[in-house]
């Protein structure tokens, strides 16, 4: 019982992080139909830039206690920073390639990803040492059920993730800007003909996806405070799994990304807890292949219409 409850709770916590990252993949795919492999590096940038800000404010010193709202201030600041970075990357690396074969954009994305990783690793940027993320969010045990602790930090993490996803949902389906995004994702040319400023909508989408990735980065760093250096294999695998979540849910579909994230979290944690932890990655990728074979468009994705 304890184990079941504990695993379920962890699955939700891990899954909501995957979902936040997956949203960025899915949104960019939705509007531009390409896999933005640099997205996971934006997530890393989110984690590391919030660490850098905390360090600049002196909160990383032993014994320092950040003010209660300091965590949220940093969350907003790193979201803004990463949004700016995402928009800049789109402007300078991807926009010149609009209309080029998708593979080219993909290679550019890989280039950008390598660039971010290796710049981040420079001694005067973030360096090659892992760092300890200070506890920016208050943490205490709220309740204890059957030997399982419900912690404030997990609650805030999952709460923030859910709040951001609801906000995104409202933005995409309830606002004019959201309608423009959906129009661009249906058909770029027609959207442009209808007077939708495609460039601005695409830039906004990148900014939004990057901000969500930044939020995921900070929340991840709260949960796993030992931050690996920016070029570490950890981040690559994490980004890959978030991408898998987006595909499983149906790439291009926002609710699908959320569902996919939670599903991947559940498969990983229940598989590791009840079958064998050795094959954890195997569960994720097997799920991916099964979904693709039986529902190629993903769980919530719409079947692609073949245009002749």
């Amino acid at each position: 019982m304890t184990k079941l409850l504990q695993t379920a709770m962890d699955a939700v916590a891990v899954g909501s992080l995957y979902a936040l990252i997956a949203l960025g993949y899915t949104m960019v795919y939705g509007v531009l139909k390409f896999i933005n492999f640099a997205h996971s590096d934006i997530f890393v940038l989110g984690a590391w830039s919030s660490f850098a800000m905390a360090a600049a404010l002196g909160w990383t010193k032993a014994g320092a206690t950040p003010p209660l709202l300091g965590g949220f201030a940093i969350l907003l600041a790193s979201m803004a920073f990463c949004a700016a970075a995402g928009i800049a990357i789109e402007r300078f690396a991807y926009r010149p390639l609009r209309g080029a074969p998708r593979l080219n954009v993909l290679i550019t994305a890989i280039g950008v990803s390598l660039l971010l990783q290796n710049v981040g690793q420079l001694p005067f940027v973030f360096g090659t040492q892992p760092q300890r993320m200070p506890q920016l969010l208050p943490d205490r045990v709220l309740a204890s059920v059957a030997g399982v602790d419900l912690r404030l930090v997990d609650l805030i993490g999952a709460g923030t993730a859910v709040a951001l996803m609801l906000g995104l949902e409202a933005l995409v389906f309830r606002t004019k800007l959201g309608r423009a995004m959906r129009a661009v994702s249906w058909d770029v040319k027609t959207a442009a003909l209808m007077g939708i400023p495609v460039d601005r909508v695409v830039a906004f989408t990148f900014g939004l996806g990057s901000a969500l990735a930044a939020a995921a980065g900070l929340l991840y760093a709260m949960k796993y405070p030992g931050l690996n250096q920016p070029a570490h294999a950890t981040w690559v695998l994490l980004g890959l799994k978030a991408f898998v979540a987006a595909v499983v849910g149906g790439i291009g579909n926002i609710r699908g990304a959320m569902l996919g994230g939670l599903l991947i979290g559940a498969v990983e944690l229940f598989g590791a807890a009840y079958f064998s932890p050795h094959l954890r990655d195997l569960y994720v990728f097997t799920l991916l292949i099964l979904v693709l074979l039986y529902r190629p468009a993903g769980l919530l994705g719409r079947a692609a219409v073949e245009k002749v």
């Binding site: 695993t7 962890d10 690996n228 950890t234 994490l238 229940f270 807890a273 932890p277 954890r280």
Partner: peptide, 20 residues
């Protein structure tokens, strides 16, 4: 004997089993 694969930072499933 619980394992993780270089990259995973979430050890909760393994540690829950270990705790038992």
């Amino acid at each position: 004997e619980q394992a993780y694969t270089g990259g995973d930072q979430d050890f909760s499933a393994q540690l829950t089993t270990i705790r038992e």
